[in-house]
């Protein structure tokens, strides 16, 4: 994280801050800086950065959980295998319940998204960690992939019948064009809210923790600040799981709309 740079910076800025009369240093956004892992060069497209490191760690934990953890293929599962089976069953049932039986073809894709998001979120909660999912660029790519593939699947499965998604036949005829406009707008807003929801949640939680961490420097309220960090950390643990769940379940909902567009 940016903490090493922070400390040197704080040392360098100490005099300046004292001059300004402000004793608190807030840098809640510095934890989201993308830095090259080796050297100080500029961040190019293929540079190995902290993004690479934490995404690789997410891949590693997924492999540890789902591949190494299940390597014994025990009929009576151990702890790791239980968690792996639980994750599998959870996502499988979600896809089946929300998107229907024919949505199960797309189960590996949704499982990929879910496992990546939940692992990246959880790893991001480690101290000094970099949260890859707090970047809008990352979540926007995932949301756009979901949006485009769902649209393509919709047209591929239903042809132009997919457009009946916007033409709500149960509404009165007068209202239908207005509703159609609203539906089209909300359809195109989907990737925006889909991506910003995840990135915003992650960013907000981490920034709030960082703000309280800065408050901990004040001796008078530091016990309160530490307590607040603990409480928010617990909340963030919940949020990081729920956001992965919400991302996956919204993907399933969009998939259901593509497979069965008729209201």
């Amino acid at each position: 994280m940016a903490t090493e740079t922070h400390s040197t910076e704080a040392a360098a800025n100490g005099a300046e801050h004292a001059e300004e009369g402000s004793s608190l240093v807030f840098h809640p956004m510095d934890q989201f800086i993308v830095k090259p892992l080796f050297g100080d060069g500029p961040v190019g497209t293929f540079t190995i950065t902290n993004v690479t490191l934490w995404m690789a760690l997410a891949v590693l934990s997924i492999i540890l959980l789902l591949v190494v953890g299940t390597s014994r293929r025990a009929v009576v599962p151990g702890r790791t295998q239980s968690i792996a089976e639980l994750a599998y069953g959870f996502v499988y049932k979600m896809v089946e319940d929300v998107a229907g039986k024919d949505g199960l073809r797309y189960f590996p894709y949704i499982m990929t998204l879910f496992m990546f998001i939940v692992m990246a979120n959880m790893l991001g909660l480690l101290p000094m960690a970099f949260t890859t999912t707090s970047h809008i660029a990352v979540t926007a790519v995932m949301a756009m992939v979901v949006f485009l593939s769902v649209t393509i699947i919709g047209f591929w499965k239903n042809g132009f019948g997919f457009l009946s998604l916007f033409w709500i036949s149960s509404a009165p005829l007068v209202l239908r064009p207005i509703l159609a406009i609203i539906e089209v707008i909300s359809y195109f807003v989907r990737p925006v809210s889909h991506s910003i929801r995840l990135a915003g949640n992650m960013m907000a939680g981490h920034a709030v923790i960082k703000v309280f961490a800065a408050f901990a420097a004040l001796l008078a309220i530091s016990p309160f600040a530490v307590l607040a960090i603990t409480a928010i950390y617990a909340l963030e643990l919940l949020v990081s799981f729920i956001q992965a769940y919400v991302f996956a379940i919204l993907t399933c909902v969009y998939l259901k709309d593509a497979l069965h567009p008729h209201h």
Binding site: A2, T5, T8, E9, A12, N13, H27, M29, D30, F32, I33, V34, P42, V43, G44, T45, F46, T47, T49, V51, T52, M55, A56, A58, V59, T112, L113, F116, T132, S134, H135, I136, A137, V138, V141, M142, A199, M203
Partner: peptide
């Protein structure tokens, strides 16, 4: 000082890197 100017999430310079590694990861 190595601090962020504005929101790091909106820094266009870093987006290509993130997108590339995200695609590789996925």
């Amino acid at each position: 000082y190595g601090g962020a100017i504005g929101m790091p999430q909106l820094c266009g310079e870093w987006m290509g890197n993130q997108v590339f590694w995200l695609v590789v990861t996925l």
